[in-house]
Design a protein around this nucleic acid. Structure first.
Lengths: 229, 229
DNA sequence: AATATAGTGTGTATTTCTTACACTAAGTAA
DNA sequence: TTACTTAGTGTAAGAAATACACACTATATT
């Protein structure tokens, strides 16, 4: 069964666009490759799908290996299958995105053997990427722009407790445009998935904002009702 | 380069959910398999991706082989990669959907060697399908329900000239619910992508409806403006 | 010629959503 | 106490979505 038949001659990989937010800028995780092809180039983190794991499991494993994180909202968004996208053979890649909060709680520890380093890089200052990874990234950004309007993915970028201004920042960074504060607040609160806390922001040198939490329970109830952020 | 390395030990396939509309019912094309596994079962048409074709090209080729058609709006919607989805080895499948007008112009001639027959079957009366094809179909139907609201895919199901009632029928079949005639017309016309013809429906035993055409030129102009059907 | 049938085609009032817009309140730092 | 910085709030106008009912017309039947 596991002998290699002639038609079983291709490989499937996962590439991840890991978006991160550190409170200020929208970043993605890139690795600097240490192996051919594209040695010394920057690239999206990715790897081959193992024999005994589904593509979803593979994506989780890869995310875990690269960041130490588990239990992250991650979603497949497209499969890239051009013939010559990989110089060493036929590799079709399934792209996933994930959203991570950076810093704060636990520092991320990317542990890759095939990379010189892994680094969070501002999406507005991306270096030249190997393979077709620029294209994969572009499609990923496009996708989350659309999804952020319908799914609560933005909250994955934020710490557990956050201010409404922080939520707005995330939306503005992803959508790439300014939003009106009053309208934004009205709308985001109208979905009823945020819980206002009895707590204020600390350590700021101005009026402290009220903290909120994303309420998973309320969200689960609404789901199916097609809510639009 | 084309020797088989141990990591190149999987296969990638395409499965197509071909939606068809004959004026009355929403159907999909199924084949009755003539080979193991799942001999004598119904299944979605699909095939392995060739070495020298991209996954998109592969999808077009397969559609062509199965229906004789080319130049059909077809779109990738998800990749299914469970470990045991194919009993003969690791096969990851990329799913596409397409929308076809049935009958009328040219009859479809499915030419498959690995199938006993190909047949258009009402989506409300699907037989038991082999592999994970029921699941692939379910996801496909879900997808087009969402897409039909934003992209003009419904017109792919209709003949070149159609009445507004026919358009509404297609929407109702896909969405699975009744729509209000007045509101539907107002909305569909408001997008400005239909051109009213100087022609009426023929051969009906009641007041003949005005025929319309989908205006690709107008649609192309609007594209980018995020129109919502 | 009258009538039954079946689908076409239209208008308006109501509600809901979107957008635009500017000031006061609170906390901190000097 | 004052100056500074961000938090937080309401309303009006316009646009879009919804709900809803009746007259028109081509044909087939008698």
């Amino acid at each position: 069964m596991k002998e290699i038949l002639p038609q079983f001659n291709s490989a499937v990989s996962i590439d991840c666009v890991l978006f991160g937010f550190d409170g200020g800028e929208l970043k993605i995780l890139l690795i600097e490759r240490n192996e051919e092809p594209f040695k010394d180039w920057w690239a999206l983190p990715g790897n081959l799908v193992g024999e005994d794991e589904s593509v979803d499991q593979s994506a989780s494993r890869i995310l875990h290996e690269l960041t130490g994180l588990s239990d992250v909202y991650m979603e497949q968004y497209y499969t890239f299958g051009e013939v010559d996208r990989h110089p060493q053979g036929r590799v079709i890649t399934v792209a996933y995105y994930a959203m991570l909060r950076l810093g704060g709680d636990k520092a991320l520890k990317p542990l890759t053997t095939y990379a010189k380093k892994a680094q969070w890089i501002n999406v507005r200052e991306l270096p030249k990427l190997g393979f077709d990874h620029q294209h994969i990234f572009d499609k990923g950004l496009e996708k989350i722009k659309r999804r952020i309007k319908h799914l609560p993915i933005a909250f994955e970028l934020l710490p557990e407790k956050f201010t409404l201004t922080q939520v707005q920042n995330v939306y503005e960074l992803i959508l790439g445009k300014k939003l009106d504060k009053r309208n934004f607040r009205k709308k985001i609160l109208s979905f009823g998935v945020l819980r206002e806390l009895d707590e204020k922001q600390k350590g700021v040198s101005f009026r402290a904002a009220t903290l909120y939490k994303f309420d998973k329970r309320k969200y689960a109830k609404l789901f199916g009702k097609e809510i639009s952020f």
